[in-house]
Write a protein that binds this DNA or RNA. Structure first.
Lengths: 136, 136
DNA sequence: AAAATCATGTAATATAACCTAACATCTGTT
DNA sequence: AACAGATGTTAGGTTATATTACATGATTTT
């Protein structure tokens, strides 16, 4: 969290740069947002700011569009992938928890969590793809 | 060199983002440019666009400023560092050349070059030779 | 075939972000 | 006190992006 680490979820790029990086038009990018394939952050002044992850998504969208998939299809694909990621995370977390907690502690906590009936926050475990973009 | 690779020298960030990333004010950033500590690219519309390298430089500048070094000092430090980089590259290149050429080839080439030394304009020859030391 | 839908283009208008330049302020040095 | 270095502030101008509405070509549905 110190000053200069660039996270892949950090909103860094204005739409103009994203256009260059992805070869999409502003119209397309906004359209994909409108249809909830991406959700870039906004500045105070309401400008969209895109993260490296957003750019990754846009590149995937572009690929799929080029392959003839329509937006609804892309949305489904993303949903599946998201689910995969989430279950991976849950498994990882479960493993960790099993390592750290005894069984009855676990039962106690699970009960408490069910009472609370909240949804979990999906944190960002979405790394890897982008490393190929950095050349040195 | 395909569309979407992100190089460290690629101009990506507008000044607003650089402010956040470096904790410098726009005034400071422009001032450092004015004094040639950085030279960010410009868009068609004359906006500054900064690369990851630029940001690194700005962070170094900030560190040095915080340590009490003034801009003249920073400029000197950067010059020294640049010189180091260049000599490193020259050494690397020299090593490569030595690997690639046998001794007598080397002697032959040297002799040929000395014969020609007077005839053509030396400085431009030397410049041509140097060009391969710079990576862009 | 006509109508509807999808993906994108284009135009109009508003405003946020950036530009340069000038002047102001603070601090440390001569 | 006067000066130079570094930064803040303000003003007026330009560029990039925002939203909205309408247009268009390609598919899909009726």
């Amino acid at each position: 969290m110190s000053g200069s680490e660039i996270r892949r979820t950090m909103p860094l790029f204005p739409i103009g740069i994203v256009m260059q990086l992805t070869d999409l038009t502003a119209r397309q990018i906004r359209y994909y947002e409108e249809h909830q394939l991406i959700s870039p952050a906004r500045t105070e002044g309401n400008r969209r700011m895109f993260s490296l992850n957003d750019i990754d998504l846009l590149l995937e969208i572009k690929d799929l569009i080029d392959q003839g998939v329509n937006l609804a299809g892309i949305k489904q694909l993303f949903a599946v992938k998201e689910k995969e990621v989430v279950t991976e995370e849950m498994e990882k977390e479960a493993k960790k928890v099993r390592r750290e907690l005894s069984d009855d502690e676990l039962r106690r906590i699970l009960r408490a969590e069910m009472m609370q009936a909240g949804r979990f926050n999906r944190s960002s475990l979405r790394q890897g793809d982008m490393s190929r973009f950095f050349k040195s």
